[in-house]
Design a protein around this nucleic acid. Structure first.
Lengths: 336, 336
DNA sequence: CTGAAAGCGCTAACAC
DNA sequence: GTGTTAGCGCTTTCAG
């Protein structure tokens, strides 16, 4: 069943059918009805490949996902998918392994599929103009920034919370609750990425309050998995370090860290308060409820797609949005 | 940059380039090298649309995801994506809203994208041959079955735990631990779907042990969200019903139910034991650790893809796998 | 082993 | 308004 069959059945030319299919105005109402009826009756569905080939582009957006253990990303992905759909585009999705390079993968995907735009859900923070020249379509960095790179602001878009500031606020909250011995858990403090920015925010909050950073309280877990959070906390406790609160880089790791605390006979928040960044719905169902800086995931996802579509369809310049994370008070932090 | 440019640059015909690109054996080693070099040098990437058009098929598998609030599915999706990739195919993904029909969506996707096969991640349990005739390629039902439908076994594949049996085993475990007043939480008991099967397993386990099913202990939450689990448990407690254990249809809802118990001043497991089906990694980090029947998610995902590829590439008949769920003992169940 | 040529199904000029 | 026609980039006979 091709466009030709429909044309023959209706006794019209194929371009007329094409016009109807593409909602062109220059078709008589009568013919339009007839064609639509035939399409419906035959269950005809246009061949996407042929369409893309002749237009030498698709109506598809590539989505490259990094860091898939992350529940936060799973949620955003659904929103992103729905938004792309709403704009009438297809989503071409790729999950990246940790050792894949998202830029190379994006460049290949773009050409193979003749994509109109790329959305990176998580990625490196240090792109250079040279490497990004591989990419020939608009792209947006979703939930991360180019803090350690050299990209021109107008050449790309990004939507992300301010990692430094959000960490700063989280730790400031602990300090304002009377805590001074505050442990911290990151992937790695010098990863030129999210952990480094949040670590800097942690340090800034401490120093601004006259508390010096104690390296013995900073744990580099080497990963973002729950096990990493659990083992990190366990190790810290066993080290005999003294602390009354913990700032954890992500909710999932914080949940695991709370588990480690309890397994070691410590109460949350009485013996150790815990705060994290993400604010998953899940974290409202832990005991105690996790106090967290909430990333507005739906907003980040929606805005990312909106901005990307604006670049794709109107050739707009890059835009950089920093939606505000906000504090959600739970039961995992108490006054000291 | 098209195949023509490469051909010209190498001074060969385009069909020769095509042969090299498709790993055909009938090309001289010398020419192959030259072509590959030119491809590399120019960063040439074949146009997928043109390829799919002429072959009138893609090398793509459609994945339709139902019930996206489910962390279990998020995990499986990653495995499915990786597996499809491993077989050298593309994945075309669609998230379905609850009111979308996965069969219709699948049929449209199949024709638009000229898919080779379809993988439904969750779906209705009551397909009929008539409606499935819309689908013209092999398909596999991943993590659900056709228990309430009339499909011929050979016409499709499915990979899923035995819902009835798994629920039966979970409840039997509670009974063997001395519990007799066992509450149960489902979406709806007569949904002709997963909840109904698990409800039947619950009833069977009770009755086999001479315990009659008390409708006052069966909660129909009306959904699979965490809120549903939380509210369901709260309602049950407020009803004044007496029970010493709870069987919950999914981990996420069980986590929420445990929260409700604690919020009502009840201890898990001392006042109420809890068991669920799913066995997420997350549930090993709750306090207490959730006792659960573990669905082997990675196995289900891998086998689903393997079976589908076998149908696609070798025209194999439908296969129905029932991987065994196993008990993971946590701290949420105690003897009575 | 290699090249020429015929489409795959569709869109977009271009005529009528 | 509508039909005719020329490709889009590639794979695949079919000759050589």
């Amino acid at each position: 069943m091709t466009i030709k069959d429909i044309a023959r059945e209706c006794g019209v030319g194929i371009s007329t059918v094409s016009r109807v299919l593409n909602n062109r105005p220059d078709v008589s109402e009568e013919v339009r009805k007839k064609v639509l009826a035939a399409v419906e009756a035959n269950g005809y569905i246009p061949n996407n490949s042929a369409r893309d080939l002749v237009r030498s582009r698709s109506d598809a957006i590539g989505v490259l996902v990094r860091g898939t253990g992350n529940l936060f990303f799973s949620d955003m992905l659904k929103t992103i998918s729905a938004e792309i759909d709403r704009y009438g585009y297809d989503m071409v999705l790729r999950f990246l392994r940790t050792d894949d390079d998202e830029v190379k993968a994006g460049a290949i995907l773009e050409r193979e599929k003749k994509l109109r735009g790329l959305l990176f859900l998580g990625g490196r923070f240090n792109y250079t103009p040279a490497e990004m020249s591989l990419i020939g379509v608009p792209y947006v960095c979703c939930s991360y920034t180019n803090s350690f790179g050299t990209l021109r602001e107008s050449d790309f878009s990004s939507v992300s919370i301010d990692d430094f500031k959000t960490a700063y606020e989280a730790v400031s909250f602990l300090i304002s609750a009377g805590h001074r011995r505050i442990a911290a858990f990151f992937d790695a403090c010098n990863d030129h990425s999210i952990s480094e920015l949040r670590y800097d925010g942690y340090c800034a909050a401490l120093e601004e309050n006259g508390i010096s950073v104690d390296p013995a309280l900073v744990v580099q877990t080497g990963g973002f998995e729950m096990e990493d959070g659990y083992n990190g906390m366990k190790k810290l406790i066993e080290s005999g370090a003294e602390f009354t609160a913990a700032f954890v880089v992500s909710d999932m790791m914080a949940i695991a860290a709370m588990k480690a605390l309890r397994d070691c006979g410590k109460r949350v928040p009485e013996d150790c308060s815990v705060i994290a960044i993400d604010g998953l719905k899940l974290s409202e169902f832990t005991s105690p409820t996790l106090t967290a800086m909430v990333q507005p995931g739906a907003e980040i996802a929606q805005e990312s797609v909106r901005i990307l579509m604006d670049m794709v369809e109107n050739g707009s310049e890059g835009v950089h949005l920093r939606p505000q994370a906000y504090l959600r008070t739970g039961g995992s932090v108490c006054r000291r």
